[in-house]
């Protein structure tokens, strides 16, 4: 158990270090985050103002907090659906992963979480900085939302990596998974509340979104960090995140085992 924990820590750290070498990529990501952020500001501020300054609990300041926090997390939460696993299945390299004395799911997820945590530094914090300095946004006064919010962010990032891993195992059966990947990208972006906060959804769509793991990846961490949900409500959201974390972990575990039996490497 202790050895396992240490390996996980090492893998997270190596993912973190690997990502830190791509500085230009990080800058590019920040430019993209900021550009989309300003476009979201334009359209969402206009929506709040058109509704008379208040819309489903959002005013301009809390909307700004939603926009810049979600833009900041965008570089870390896997909403694009790309995973190393599918590449390695396609090339056959995944057999090497199976030969290693490591849990394949754990090692893939751990190094992705490490890389994602690094992305918070060059992409996450500056995006939030733009929100605070350039646009202005609502921020909670007590330290509690920040602490619980950070935990929620880590849970959200891990959940994203786990869901993408589980979906990536479809490669064992399909080989070419770009279609699934783009399907994931569309669905997760909408239901995680990337372009429109799920609080603005019509009731039926909101209920549908809440029945999926996607809000736990982006919307809930943002709600907790911005203080839109506080107290017992915020603890409930973290609980929901943990529930999905467990479920997707199990799903990934069984899919890996089934995929391993199916795996057939061509060539030699």
């Amino acid at each position: 158990m202790r050895a396992n924990l240490q390996i996980t820590r090492r893998l997270v750290w190596s993912g973190f270090r690997q990502q830190s070498t791509y500085r230009l990529a990080a800058l590019g990501g920040l430019v993209a985050n900021a550009t989309f952020g300003f476009l979201k500001v334009a359209i969402l501020f206009a929506t709040v103002r058109a509704a008379g300054g208040e819309l489903n609990g959002y005013d301009v300041a809390t909307m700004s907090a939603y926009i810049w926090l979600s833009q900041g997390l965008l570089g870390s939460v896997n909403l694009h659906g790309r995973s190393e696993l599918t590449e390695r299945i396609k090339s056959g390299d995944v057999t090497i992963d199976f030969l290693r004395p490591l849990n394949v799911q754990l090692s893939h997820v751990a190094s992705e979480v490490g890389a994602s945590l690094f992305a918070l530094i060059p992409r996450g914090l500056p995006s939030i900085g733009i929100g605070v300095v350039v646009v202005g946004m609502a921020m909670p006064d007590s330290p509690w939302p920040y602490l619980l919010g950070f935990l929620s962010v880590v849970l959200g990032i891990t959940l994203g990596a786990l869901v993408v891993y589980a979906i990536g195992t479809s490669g064992f059966w399909l080989i070419e998974t770009r279609g699934i990947q783009s399907l994931y990208m569309v669905v997760s972006g909408l239901l995680a509340g990337l372009f429109v906060p799920i609080g603005l959804f019509p009731t039926w769509l909101l209920a549908f979104a809440e029945a999926t793991p996607f809000p736990s990846m982006l919307m809930y961490p943002v709600d907790i960090l911005s203080g839109r949900v506080s107290g017992v409500g915020s603890l409930r959201l973290v609980g929901v995140q943990c529930f999905w974390l467990g479920l997707t972990w199990l799903a990934g575990h069984f899919l890996t085992a089934a995929g391993r039996r199916k795996l057939e490497v061509q060539g030699g």
Partner: peptide, 25 residues
């Protein structure tokens, strides 16, 4: 086939995002 479906959904979801905003105002 999945490619065609997901590409259709991309367009559809993008339209839905516009609709959701106008549904409020």
């Amino acid at each position: 086939r999945i490619d065609l479906t997901s590409s259709f959904l991309v367009g559809f979801v993008e339209l839905a995002e516009v609709w959701v905003l106008f549904h409020n105002v």
